[in-house]
Simulated scan of single mutants.
Amino acid sequence: MTQRSHADLVAEQSRSPRATSALAASWRRSMLKHGLDPADRRRPDRLTAAELAERHQAMAAFLHVAGPQIDQLYNLVGLSGCNVLLTDAQGVVLDQRVSDGDAAQFRDWGLWRGADWSEAAQGTNGIGTCLVEGRQVTIHRDEHFHTRNTAMSCMDAPIWGPDGRLLAALDVSSARADQTERYNRLIGAQVAQTARAIEALFFRSSFPQARIVVASDDHADQAVLLAVDKDDLAIGATRAARRVLGLEREGSLRPRPAADLLGRQGDLQGFDRGERAAVVRALARADGNVSAAARALGIGRATMYRRMARLGISENHG
């Protein structure tokens, strides 16, 4: 497809009210909302070294967690001429893995650290469109808005932060002319899996004193995790867990009893449930020795037995 014919097709589809696909919607945003020209051949803008360093600093903890996962992904796809990129929520490339042999090509395209690949700046592309739509996308060759980007295929997945807000995009871009859509799907699946792994690892590292609970087994393709504190209160939830459990979509989580959220209340209510948990923990720490558990709780042995009977705890519970 020639430069002009691709630009004409994008312009036609962008203005057509009959074009209702997700791709056409992205082209329309690029042209009508952001005022971009599909024939524009300018390279992406890049941040200064100082600006990039500032963004790195702001995302330092996240980048530390993500780095080993990016290495693993690159080990899987790097030899096939792929460039692995990690951006922030604004589409600026913060980290990258690429072979020396492919570096010149990707640098020429602008797929490099510090480059702005937001949809507002570059039109339809894997990184920018993934971030706008908050979902996994593949933009294959002439699906890109700009004609100069039609030699690449880009597979992307979003990464959500512990606060439920969009945090980053993980991208694998290929320079291979023979890249097939079937191969794109295979890479896309690996990108999505790596993005979920990074999201889960960063969530865990964000609540170092909490225990992490899988909130649902019905969503194996998502990180459905709760962070629960020592008082059995849920103090954090991943984006998927927030949606599954009907919690705040984003921002700080109002602490709630984890048992209430997970449907494990049992017959006891309120303080009785908390008291039972405290007694059971004391018995477990004392290896079932009632006298030792009572001393640990600061109560007498007789009182301990009365509480155990009321709470339905057998003497050999420990």
Rank of each mutant, 00 (worst) to 15 (best):
S21Y: 00
H317L: 11
V10G: 04
V92A: 02
R211T: 14
A284V: 12
D100G: 14
L268N: 08
H146G: 02
I235H: 00
G101D: 11
A22V: 03
R55K: 14
R306K: 13
H64P: 00
M304D: 01
A104R: 11
D217W: 09
E51R: 03
T194Y: 07
A157Y: 01
F106M: 02
R243I: 10
S30L: 02
Q72F: 07
A58G: 09
C154E: 04
S14R: 07
M155R: 12
E54W: 03
S16G: 06
H6W: 04
G236C: 01
Q105W: 11
D221I: 10
P68A: 14
A60E: 15
R113G: 07
T194M: 11
D88V: 10
A223Q: 08
D231G: 06
P158F: 11
L167S: 08
R242M: 05
D100L: 13
L52A: 08
I212T: 03
R307S: 05
R141L: 05
I212H: 09
H146S: 03
L170E: 10
D229F: 08
S252T: 13
A151L: 09
R256V: 10
L111F: 11
A200P: 01
I235Q: 04
G78M: 08
R276G: 07
A50N: 07
S291L: 14
R55S: 02
Q179F: 02
G270D: 13
D156S: 15
V65W: 10
R55T: 06
D95A: 15
F207I: 08
R256S: 04
V191I: 05
A302M: 04
E54P: 00
V244Q: 10
A293P: 02
D116L: 06
D163R: 03
P255M: 06
E315I: 14
R239K: 13
R29A: 02
F271I: 15
D267K: 13
A104L: 11
R242I: 07
G134E: 14
S26A: 10
A53E: 12
A210D: 12
N125F: 00
Q190D: 05
M304F: 15
P162C: 05
Q136K: 13
M304C: 10
S5Y: 04
A24P: 00
D267S: 15
D267L: 14
I139D: 00
S16V: 10
N289W: 07
S118N: 05
R307P: 00
D163E: 05
H219N: 14
L253S: 03
A151S: 12
G123K: 03
S291N: 13
V98S: 09
E12G: 10
Q265A: 11
G81W: 03
G263E: 03
A215G: 15
I313V: 15
A104Q: 11
S206F: 00
P255S: 09
W109R: 00
H6F: 02
T150H: 07
A215R: 01
D217H: 12
D229S: 05
R28A: 11
A53Y: 02
G251C: 09
G312R: 00
G298I: 09
S5Q: 12
E248L: 07
